[in-house]
Design a protein around this nucleic acid. Sequence first.
DNA 1: GTTAACAGCTTGTATATACAAGTATAGCCA
DNA 2: TGGCTATACTTGTATATACAAGCTGTTAAC
Lengths: 241, 241
Amino acid sequence: MQPRFITIKSALLDDIAAGRLQPGAQVASENQLATRFGVSRMTARRAISELVTEGILARTQGVGTFVADSRPMASMLTVRGIQEEIRARGHKHHCELLCHDQRVAENGVAQWMGVDENTPLFYTELTHFDNDLAVQLEYRWVNPSWVPEYIHQDFSLTTPNEYLSKQAPLTEADHVVEAVLPSAAQAAALGVSASLPCLQIHRRTFSHLGVISVATLIHPGDRYRLGDHLNFTQSPNKETS
Amino acid sequence: MQPRFITIKSALLDDIAAGRLQPGAQVASENQLATRFGVSRMTARRAISELVTEGILARTQGVGTFVADSRPMASMLTVRGIQEEIRARGHKHHCELLCHDQRVAENGVAQWMGVDENTPLFYTELTHFDNDLAVQLEYRWVNPSWVPEYIHQDFSLTTPNEYLSKQAPLTEADHVVEAVLPSAAQAAALGVSASLPCLQIHRRTFSHLGVISVATLIHPGDRYRLGDHLNFTQSPNKETS
DNA sequence: GTTAACAGCTTGTATATACAAGTATAGCCA
DNA sequence: TGGCTATACTTGTATATACAAGCTGTTAAC
């Protein structure tokens, strides 16, 4: 049996994922939740507290608890797979595989990879969905030398990102972020207008062996944003009143 | 008087900052902390729990609580002023001041700042040019409590960013990046088409006093990109076995 | 000597309770 | 009508308590 506060968290996440709780909507108060689930207020409170620190809910003393504006916000400092981000927000993730084959690299990818221009590379193309809404179009080139089994994976179950991070732990990455207009094909794949600005992330990931993969990620601008909190103090700072 | 769990958190952070608690060292148990600070175990536990979710401590049931292994990732992302970036590229920078006054904050800025909604704030609006090509439209709100002289500065000579970083050294920042379409006014100020996707950066900067300033930066997507190189290799953890 | 049980620590979950503090509203009074 | 207070909510802090669950070293049995 799982802990009760987990049960309550799941129930709230379900409500949010199913749309029964829209962003901005007020969540039942701690006492109401306690009564509904037959637990003490402190237990209900713990469920809410964790969702608050996860950024899914927001509280105001004297007012109540509300569903936070849940437009996905990813970090630029950590390279998290999109499926991880979506699940962390309590949403449902699935993806559709558009391509999965071996081919010679296109326009400059070979250079980025540091391989010969005629080297065949693994290539996958897929669309990621957050609660059935397309949020990422992923074009990925993978160096077959380092992960030869990549081509035989079933990416309807596990995403390329998940697979790669298990096979070859990430040591370095670089990425470039820009605002672009999607091509007609990209707009169609994402189900958005071709005039909708998109965030395009070009990301190259390294393991200790070398460049593992080069990916281009396209996100509709109204469904995705990147965010970070930076701390420049050497030692963790203490709260002083 | 600050809450007791904050006192305990601070004490632990002090111990870590001062080196009395090295990474990997075991922290006093919940019961020991409770006794030492004269609080209940649940209160001591809360202090520890928050430090755990912040990644500063790590716990194992049945074993104890330990100082997490060195938090590297000392943000490779630096908040550089745009004039610095431009000059670093060997280009010429200049800017045009569009607004510079004191006014009440608009839509949510007060909340971001953590000040009352009716507090007048300093506001500047300017366009930055890279070799006479507009690359950034900057809307900036500044908290007058921390930098009262801001309003008297001449920003044709020094940029707000330069001035602020001298007055109140940056300790923290957070930012959100998204792709948007510019408003008609923004497109005009930047001299671009209103259908050109732009990178919008919402940035909040902190000094040790609190939130110094909130800025919205708009960059034409075809003239500006954000990039980074991340290194995840950290000194291997010393297993204290 | 090897193994098994146990005791004593740790953290993890859960409850019932109390009071403090912030917010909104209903209703009273001037 | 305008401004006040009382009240009834909300979340925030803190305590004392109980038992569950996990790890470790000691002890006792084989």
